[in-house]
């Protein structure tokens, strides 16, 4: 993609931010209900030390939770897909558990894991593991029928089929799962921080108590950037892995 094309997504952002800035300054709505973007930027700068620390904390917890989800989700999908029967039995639950509202179970996580980072990492891992698992299941079944027949004709064993056919075919779907999981891990971490303390979630919590809407928005902005960063990692990996895959 050319640089000009890469910059296209900035147009909507610039338009909306300008509208919000003008509307806020002209008094179309009260700044304490919806702040001007310039207020949010000023707040980010003023409290940069606090935001920097909180961002690093959330980054660490979300990444760790995401990593756990990737490893656990992939492993589970692999293990369960070794037997058709086991897979049939567990597959619906992988989809079912995707709908668990982490907000509802967050207070329980504090009871199980205690205040602080373990709860935050757990919340991030729990919400992000099921998309990986579901994508893994789907991916492991996505090998083309022709190739599957070919493997059968050559009397390939179960493990050989798994490693040489099913896993390679699953990579695109697994990457999609990882991409969804990346965004969810950040949401999970922030929710975990609401109950467990610390990070950007903690900043939002305290800013709400102080009626600092600008600070709430600043923290939200940072957490979306964090999610965007993790998603970009997957996109970069996809470009590398899949282009190589297609060449071979």
């Amino acid at each position: 993609m050319s640089w000009a094309k890469r910059l296209d997504p900035l147009w909507p952002l610039a338009s909306i931010a300008s509208f919000a800035e003008v509307g806020s300054r002209a008094g179309w709505w009260e700044a304490y209900l919806f702040p001007a973007p310039s207020m949010v930027v000023a707040c980010l700068w003023e409290d940069r030390a606090e935001f920097g620390g909180a961002f690093a904390e959330t980054l660490f917890a979300a990444s760790l939770g995401w990593g756990i989800a990737l490893a656990a989700g992939t492993l589970l999908a692999l293990t369960l897909s070794l037997s058709d029967r086991v897979e049939r039995a567990f597959r619906p639950y992988a989809v079912f558990f995707q709908t668990v509202p982490v907000v509802a179970i967050a207070p329980l996580l504090v009871i199980w894991f205690g205040f602080g980072r373990p709860t935050v990492v757990a919340a991030a891992a729990i919400v992000s593991v099921f998309p990986v698992l579901a994508a893994g299941f789907a991916g492991l079944r996505s090998a083309s029928a022709a190739l599957t027949d070919y493997f059968r004709l050559r009397r390939a064993g179960r493990l050989a089929t798994l490693f040489k056919l099913r896993i390679p075919s699953a990579v695109p779907q697994l990457l999609t799962g990882a991409r969804i999981a990346a965004g969810l891990a950040v949401i999970g971490a922030v929710v975990g921080e609401f109950v467990g303390g610390g990070g950007l979630g903690g900043v939002v919590d305290a800013a709400t108590a102080q009626q600092r809407v600008d600070k709430v928005f600043a923290a939200v902005l940072l957490s979306t950037l964090l999610g965007f960063g993790l998603v970009s990692i997957v996109d970069a990996a996809r470009e590398r892995l899949l282009s190589r895959w297609l060449r071979s």
Partner: peptide, 14 residues
């Protein structure tokens, strides 16, 4: 999260 979501929703007056 509830508090946060509610805060945002309230901020928007929805």
């Amino acid at each position: 999260m509830i508090r946060f979501a509610l805060g945002i929703a309230m901020a928007l007056g929805i």
